[in-house]
Simulated assay, not measured.
Amino acid sequence: MSNIIDFGSLQLRFLQSKDDTAGSVDIFEMTLQPNARMPIPHYHDRWDETIYGLSGVSTWTIDGAQTDLGPGESVFIKRGVVHGFTNRSAGPATCLCILSPGVLGPQYFREMAALLSAGTPPDPAKMKETMLRHGLVPAPPA
Rank of each mutant, 00 (worst) to 15 (best):
N3A: 01
I4K: 05
I5C: 02
I5M: 13
D6P: 12
F7H: 10
Q11C: 02
Q11T: 15
F14L: 06
L15H: 00
L15Q: 11
Q16D: 06
K18S: 02
D20V: 10
S24L: 15
V25F: 05
E29D: 00
E29Y: 01
T31D: 11
L32A: 02
L32N: 06
L32W: 00
Q33A: 15
A36D: 00
M38R: 03
I40A: 03
I40P: 10
H42C: 06
H42W: 10
Y43H: 15
H44W: 08
R46D: 08
T50H: 03
T50V: 10
G53M: 03
S55W: 11
S55R: 15
G56A: 04
V57Q: 03
V57H: 00
S58K: 10
S58C: 08
T59M: 05
T59S: 06
T59R: 09
W60P: 13
T61P: 11
A65M: 11
A65S: 14
Q66K: 06
D68K: 12
G70C: 01
G70D: 01
P71T: 03
P71H: 04
G72P: 08
S74F: 14
V75L: 08
I77W: 02
K78T: 14
R79G: 13
V82L: 08
H83R: 00
H83K: 05
G84C: 11
G84F: 04
G84K: 06
F85V: 12
N87A: 00
R88H: 10
S89M: 14
A93H: 01
T94N: 09
C95L: 05
L96P: 02
C97N: 14
C97P: 06
S100W: 09
P101R: 12
G102W: 07
V103E: 12
V103S: 11
V103R: 10
G105F: 07
P106V: 00
Q107W: 05
R110T: 09
E111D: 14
E111G: 04
M112T: 07
A113P: 07
A114T: 13
A114C: 00
L115T: 11
A118G: 13
P121Q: 07
P122Q: 06
